[in-house]
Design a protein around this nucleic acid. Sequence first.
DNA 1: ATATCATTTGGAGTCAACTCCAAGTCAATA
DNA 2: TATTGACTTGGAGTTGACTCCAAATGATAT
Lengths: 127, 127
Amino acid sequence: MTISEVSKKYNLTQDTLRYYEKIGMFSNVPRNKNGIRNYDENSCRRIEFVKCMRDAGVEIEALLEYMKLFEKGKSTAKRRKEILEEQREKLLEKQKSINASLERLDYKIKLYNDIVSGKKKDFTETI
Amino acid sequence: MTISEVSKKYNLTQDTLRYYEKIGMFSNVPRNKNGIRNYDENSCRRIEFVKCMRDAGVEIEALLEYMKLFEKGKSTAKRRKEILEEQREKLLEKQKSINASLERLDYKIKLYNDIVSGKKKDFTETI
DNA sequence: ATATCATTTGGAGTCAACTCCAAGTCAATA
DNA sequence: TATTGACTTGGAGTTGACTCCAAATGATAT
């Protein structure tokens, strides 16, 4: 797969794919004789994983450490597990913050709706 | 309340509080005769709201527009409601991304645990 | 009276994560 | 054969959201 195909498939710009490679996130991306990237199955799996984690807000630095350890094989499993657990905790925290904001937004939107629909007359939102 | 008290109460640095004010997020923060901020109830409510939204990842720009419209009063209610709805949608998207990553992390962590506890022998994680 | 301290300001600096640019290579098409 | 178009690189620029700095002010403690 060319970079443009992978870019479309995972909705990441080509610049981002090259950037990730440049910083060492993906090693061993296959190339043809002209030096052009020819992503294989394994590369795609790694990209898909990083994309998923990045979408959730996991930091590049953590992913970078994880991906580099992954290259090094079995002996790094313990640390890799720790990294995943750390990131899991962070995502649970984010989840909480988002839920708190969503509750608040839902409440406020309902309030605005009640006013628009005439169920409430006095417009007394205080932020 | 002084800026240092508000800073502690809401876990925001004084720099951040001043920065928010500088970009126009909070107007009318009361001052004493020496020009020192003396946050009142209303200011605190606004800060708490912004803090909650920011923790969830709502962008400054959206909050800025909302807060400025709020100052302008009733006539801006329709647009304000739209902003809240837009941000709600964004947070729901984030929630999905986080849930997807969490599922994946949970699965992988379980896999690592099974290996450590000896339930599984062949260590075959593929990212 | 002097020092300490919390505050103020405008503006510069930082950081993460891209994003863009210019100059170059190569294969395929008009 | 000339050009088009997708790709390459190193490195510079951008964006969002702070974070830091230096100089100044006024209140309080020694």
